[in-house]
Design a protein around this nucleic acid. Structure first.
Length: 300
DNA sequence: CAAGTGCCTTTATC
DNA sequence: AGATAAAGGCACT
């Protein structure tokens, strides 16, 4: 049962925050808009939330949890000045001011981004909602039911055919193997927050279905490693369109071909992003990513 | 409206 | 190291 008390976080006038943008920019997959309200989960709590008149209003979870989850503890103005390296990132930041990096549950992030490989966002949403309906706990709310994200135990004990019913495709095996590994070793993924970016990444790369890109997404969106710089097809486009002068001509020609990135190519692009944008490279990535996707959408 | 392309890639193999 | 292929199926054009 969700907590029915209305909670309010008042934002300072200088504090950039855009709830809708933050929830629908593609970093999280299980929030639904209902009029001016958003419904989803934070931890295992069913949450209803909206932004109004410089305040965030919500039900179902503590103020601290909301502040942390929404990234409201980040000094966004400082981050903007740190990543403000050129005209292009400046335009993206200006257009999507108030977009914040969420601090999602690391376990849910891990499974989410294994699902996300080679899929579009609409499909990813479907897969994760299917998984939650099949294997999560039902939470009753005023209007309709919601589901928590399944635990490692639950997914580790699932059958491959039940997983496949969630439209996971070949990812079903990765999900099963990764879940078993986490469950059987009793891994606490939250403890990775204390590790360095590199050490946490090494740990994540042991899981089936996790390569450099997925690891970077979990590091950024689940573990709060703001220096992570995931490079997907959109980021490759951004880098090829606006940042080619930072790479050798031969390299640019090679990655311009429509093929997936090799490990070394990924590392080269990732290294550039982290060095060029600095310790908040992850924020730069998310603004550039969203900027590029919205441009593509407009052109239709 | 059918068919083709694209999708926040990873893994296996040579 | 680098190239190549295979792995759902939905959404969009």
């Amino acid at each position: 049962m969700e907590d029915l008390r209305l909670m309010i976080v008042h934002l300072e006038k200088t504090c950039p925050f855009d709830l809708g943008l933050t929830l629908c920019c593609g970093q999280t997959f299980r929030w639904n808009r209902e009029g001016e309200w958003w419904r989803g989960t934070i931890g295992d709590n069913s949450v209803k939330i909206r932004q109004q008149n410089g305040a965030v209003e919500f039900y179902g979870v503590s103020k601290d949890a909301v502040m942390t989850y929404l990234g409201l503890t980040d000094d966004l103005l400082k981050i903007y000045s740190e990543i403000n390296r050129d005209q292009h990132i400046r335009a993206a930041v200006e257009q999507f001011r108030g977009l914040r990096i969420l601090r999602q549950n690391p376990w849910e992030s891990l499974i989410s981004y294994i699902c996300a490989t080679y899929k579009n966002i609409a499909s990813i949403n479907r897969m994760l909602n299917n998984l939650s309906r099949q294997f999560g706990e039902r939470i009753r709310t005023e209007n309709h039911d919601f589901f928590t994200f399944p635990t490692p135990k639950k997914l580790a004990n699932a059958s491959i055919s039940d997983l496949r019913k969630c439209e996971l495709g070949y990812r079903a095996e990765y999900i099963l193997k990764t879940s078993k590994k986490v469950y059987e070793n009793n891994y606490n993924l939250d403890s990775l927050k204390k590790k360095s970016y590199e050490d946490a990444r090494t740990f994540l790369l042991q899981f089936p279905g996790v390569g450099l890109k997925v690891a970077d997404c979990v590091l950024l969106f689940g573990l709060g490693k703001l220096e992570a710089f995931p490079v997907d097809v959109w980021m490759r486009r951004v880098l090829l369109r606006h940042y080619t002068s930072h790479f050798p001509k031969k390299f640019v020609t090679k990655i311009s071909k429509e093929e997936s990135l090799s490990e070394s190519q990924y590392k080269q692009l990732n290294k550039f992003g982290r060095e060029y944008f600095g310790k908040y490279a992850g924020y730069a990535q998310e603004y550039l990513y969203h900027h590029e996707r919205m441009k593509a959408r407009k052109q239709r």
